[in-house]
Nucleic acid binder design. Sequence first.
DNA 1: TCTGGGGTCCTAGGACCC
DNA 2: TCTGGGGTCCTAGGACCC
Length: 359
Amino acid sequence: MSHNREYWVLHVDLDQFIAAVEVLRHPELAGKPLIVGGRGDPTERAVVSTASYEAREFGVGSGMPLRIAARKAPDAVILPVDAEAYTAASAQVMATLRTQPDATVQVLGWDEAFLGVQTDDPEAYARRVQAAVLERTGLHCSIGIGDTLVRAKVATGFGKPRGVFRLTAENWLEIMGDRPTVDLWGVGSRISARLAAHGIATVAELATADPAVLATEFGPKMGPWYGLLGRGEGERVVDDTPWVARGHSRETTFQQDLTEPAQVEAAVRGLTAKVLEDVAAEGRPVIGLTLKVRYAPFITKTMQRKIAETRDPAVVEAAALGLAGRIEPGRPIRLLGLRAEMPMPEKAREGHTPTRSGW
DNA sequence: TCTGGGGTCCTAGGACCC
DNA sequence: TCTGGGGTCCTAGGACCC
């Protein structure tokens, strides 16, 4: 075929994934403001999972309380989150990606994945991926092309919607250099503020920042990592090693704050049962627990406890109730979360990916 | 009218040991 | 009276991502 096949990282990201899946099922909603969140009831405590482009024009965005979203876009259709439907659509998308020639697929979530491919024309390859996904699933996606995972991931944003964009060592600073550090994958509002306090506001400034300053401010791992991020460097090879969950957790936000110890105890028992279902489905034991408590209005505390490896539900429940015994009495509770930690197989972890969200 | 639910990884500080 | 230096394990909390 060709004489010049190189290795490229492609980052595939579905456009408006959740809203798009809903429109596939409800074609009459096409072109209308659409909000998906919670149980679809804007009077409940819940947030927006996805807003269609039409809804975004009203200032609605994901993460926004559903109540506020409904007020901003009063004519929007509000649908409940249907995780099963999105999981099914996602599986179709990922299966399509895996059929691409010589592609290594690293799934990042419902609606995105890295592809490692060998090609002399990554743009043409990306266009074929888009066509295949559209044909098989009816969904549109954008694709970022890069020589590192970070650059491919960031490139996708410039391709949206339905486009393809390439970011490499060659054009990274030209495109990203003047942008704020918060535009980087893995830099949020807190980190960008701490960087700014050191006079580091842009990607270019981060790229050339004094490593000693970064290490002092952020520690021996994160300091060097942020420096790499500023340069767009990092992992260059897509890793399709099957993902193994470190743990499972369940959270509940109560529509009415809990005030009675008996209510808390019942809630902890319920969470324990759900978490143990997820753990048991994998056939692995539990080695630790974290109880998260959100007191009204918004103060979160966590309590952790290591436990001897066990598969006995009664032991786990007793440990969870033991943690719950440390909850401050008399304060209204808005949210409870329980996480069970599971033992991990021995494996060397090389490199650092900011998030390896599960699948 | 306040802020979901599921994850990952890192850091700091105390306890404890030699 | 003063109080090393290295290591591990554990808990609490922070930050980020989809």
